[in-house]
Design a protein around this nucleic acid. Sequence first.
DNA 1: GACAATCAGATTTTCGAAAAATTTATATTC
DNA 2: GAATATAAATTTTTCGAAAATCTGATTGTC
Lengths: 213, 213
Amino acid sequence: MGQDLVSRLRADIVSHIFMPEAKLKFADLTKRYDVGIGTLREALSQLVSEGFVTLEAGKGFKVAQVSREELIEVTDHFVDLEKRAIADAIAHGDDDWESHIVAAHHRLSIIENLPWAQRMERHGEWVQRHREFHESLVAACQGRWLFRLRSMMFDQLDRYRFLSKMSLDGQGKKKFEEHRLIMQAVLDRDVAKATEMIEEHIRGTTEAGLKVL
Amino acid sequence: MGQDLVSRLRADIVSHIFMPEAKLKFADLTKRYDVGIGTLREALSQLVSEGFVTLEAGKGFKVAQVSREELIEVTDHFVDLEKRAIADAIAHGDDDWESHIVAAHHRLSIIENLPWAQRMERHGEWVQRHREFHESLVAACQGRWLFRLRSMMFDQLDRYRFLSKMSLDGQGKKKFEEHRLIMQAVLDRDVAKATEMIEEHIRGTTEAGLKVL
DNA sequence: GACAATCAGATTTTCGAAAAATTTATATTC
DNA sequence: GAATATAAATTTTTCGAAAATCTGATTGTC
């Protein structure tokens, strides 16, 4: 399915299998993903609007750059949007929303509790479950564009989260504890605490990323 | 060129040539725009990420809905982002930026000074020049994502601007004067006044749109 | 040697035909 | 007559060949 190809491409860009500014040639990609040129082109042009890929007319597709400046800006936008989305979700969330959060957190904690080496092996899964956990927190957000914009920024941060993975080694346990506390604050419907913790959580990761860039 | 097709499609959606929720069939579109299916698909999938079109797997493309709720939400996001972008642009803009604003305003005023009937005839051009004027105001904005997000919301508002066109009949002169005053405030580097005026300018149009929806 | 023109190879872009899927219409059964 | 199954028609989706474009090397000229 098409949407799945977009996700696979994005995942490969996020995990730096395709390095920033690398050329994305159709000849290579059709082999790697076993799809036709047209299908690929459609997926890539979607990633252009998402900001992961750039397209220069006649010169083809390239992986978008990463930079300190962008990381800082994206972090600021994400923190701002995420706080609002969390508040919105806490205001509107029901029992179903709560139980989905608990479930997503459990799935994430299974990987986060693994020994370091194993956790690294399953980094792709971690990214996925981490995304799902954070998304579950704001799933009850009523503002559709608020949700959309914050998800866009979250996806962008995923690229930098991978970079910070290296300088993050010792911090695994700390991040894990933060996830639990954020969940608790959200379930307690404590907007002030939840937003404050989220901000600290995100900015901490960004700090680590800035060290590598 | 591909990008141009995206613009033409967007313009036709904005101007309600394709009504909200209307099905976008390839058979029709290939004739209308005289391009192949693949090219069309690429353009449409870009409009999906922009939020103008929806895609249900296997069921094809449809024009995205419009609603009071969305208009209100998009307005709020746009006002917020535009104010920040204007402040950013005023902080960084140079002489070149200023002169582009004056030029864009002049081009817009040529159409806005036309008698009502003629102005309506050239509504497509007005939309384009109106976009260019507003974009020129924030062109010096350094935050690339701030610029991007605000442009996204501006494009969304274009859909509703068309709706408000009808209930706007008497207000043409007022809007024209507002554009001049906003330009003046920006050129004076008066952030407080510029942001205040922009907000009033936008919310006024949204009010008109809400009457129709 | 510096610069422009030319050409071959590689890459992107476009297109429409074939395959897959969905919807609509028709027939069959209870 | 309603419900289900079958067939036809419509529409979407995929794919790769052909056209257009770009890149880089080679040749020729000043």
